[in-house]
């Protein structure tokens, strides 16, 4: 993920605010469970960025685990 973090920091900007993304607190939620996590987002408008690797990796695992609860 370090490599991906670097790519996000260097390459991805919020299109509306034209600023790079920084790590910030975000709540993810699924099946009545909330998860406070740190994700890259636009510090100005708050738009949250989720890279493909996270969606298909860790988040997918969390979804599957919650679905069997």
């Amino acid at each position: 993920m370090i490599q991906i973090d670097k790519e996000i920091q260097e390459a991805i900007i919020c299109n509306k605010c034209s600023i790079p993304l920084t790590l910030g607190k975000v709540t993810l939620s699924y099946m009545e469970s909330d998860f406070p996590v740190e994700l890259y987002k636009c510090s100005q408008c708050g738009l949250v960025f989720i890279p493909e690797e996270l969606a298909k990796g860790k988040m997918d695992q969390v979804e599957k685990a919650l679905e069997d609860k």
Partner: peptide
Amino acid sequence: TYWVEYSLHKDGFIVHNAYSHRLEIKG
């Protein structure tokens, strides 16, 4: 939640990647 990576083209939008997740972004 669906994510799309795309670019503009004279005939429409070119889709470069697509992925999804069920965890909801609450902000």
